[in-house]
Design a binder for these strands. Structure first.
Lengths: 196, 196
DNA sequence: GGTTTACTTGAACGATCGTTCACATGATAA
DNA sequence: TTATCATGTGAACGATCGTTCAAGTAAACC
């Protein structure tokens, strides 16, 4: 094996993150990985097979970061910095502001069933990660006891999705920061009643 | 002219909304519009030219709806129903839950400069629409005087973007409604301070 | 009726897409 | 050294992409 597996996935992640599944052509992939088509197909079966591994690698990485947030001394502060890091990177890494998973959801129909399943499952994994953060915050007294865990987790992921789509267009980091501040405020705030 | 212009744009909007710019092939377009390639190109120059008109038509329509919200007796109630309508349509119109503009942003690089410009300008138009809603709400006493108009407008658009990406995946409308409730609560809530 | 003009047609173009496969290469085992 | 086997190579395939253009059609004007 001439090619290191992790290195391949890493490079492929960068490409798919920048371009998306559809727009990243096999010839782009060949160039990015410095591999010939035969080698790629021998290992990954297809473009979709490679993409599936990339999605799983990306989701693992994201889940790990969310776990780190729960393990911090102040999870709420750590959450703030998690958002800040994800949304206000340098301009040459602007593509990273968009969540690879969210980007993939936009082209979910073109992706193929196997990778599609991986994307949706990854979204569930992240949701669980956000839920853990909420629970830890409540345990540590950083969020009110009455916070509805499940709703708040979904809401938090939702905020993340929205902010990532938004930050992609935003030139002014100060505006993005203000939005993150608002997320933290609202997280501590009131929640809708069950009854309707 | 055998073909009605508005009807063409309407049909094209449906197709692009369902599939996105890249995935909607010229042959799909030909079928959806019941037109031959020559006719399409004679009128719209290119696939991108057609898409540009679709985007503008979509943005006009959205702006009109936002305007209606400001003109309602209770803009805040109208805003709630605007969200509800956009996000909880029937399953066969699920594609409509995703905002065409947001969907387009995800593939902004593949679209071409002309249509790209149209997409970004449309986003600005919508932002202005949201801003008007905020201002009207303040005037009518439905929102506190101290609400930071510009920030709140950007925030509201952001919520809309996030919810549309989220509602696309959501099977349970009740969850979506809960998220809309939360938006209205937070809109009335506290805002981050300028100082940092 | 004949000519002009505006619009429509659809076969065909070159480019690019994801993918394949006969063959080359190089490490390991005998 | 020779045989074996996993791995890597790259020209080439059929399909599909957005687009073109010479020819056809039909209404308008003289």
């Amino acid at each position: 094996m001439r090619y290191d597996h992790d290195e391949i996935i890493e490079k492929a992640t960068t490409l798919f993150w920048q371009r998306g599944f559809q727009a990243a052509g096999m010839r782009d992939i060949q160039q990015a990985l410095d591999m010939r088509p035969g080698s790629i197909y021998a290992r990954f079966q297809s473009k979709e097979g490679l993409f599936k591994l990339v999605v799983e690698h990306y989701a693992d990485n994201s889940a790990k970061r969310l776990k780190q947030v729960t393990e911090a001394r102040s999870p709420l502060d750590a959450l703030y910095h998690f958002f800040e890091t994800a949304l206000t990177g340098p301009d040459e890494q602007r593509y990273m502001r968009q969540c690879l998973l969210v980007k993939s959801i936009a082209e979910l129909d073109l992706i193929g069933d196997i990778a599609k399943k991986a994307v949706l499952e990854s979204m569930q994994t992240l949701k669980a990660g956000f839920r853990n953060i909420i629970e830890t915050c409540i345990e540590k007294g950083e969020l009110p006891e009455h916070t509805p865990t499940s709703t708040a987790a979904e809401w938090l992921q939702n905020q993340f999705v929205g902010l990532r789509a938004f930050a992609l267009l935003q030139d002014d980091n100060q505006t993005t920061i203000k939005m993150i501040d608002k997320v933290i405020i609202d997280l501590k705030g009131q929640w809708p009643q069950q009854t309707h």
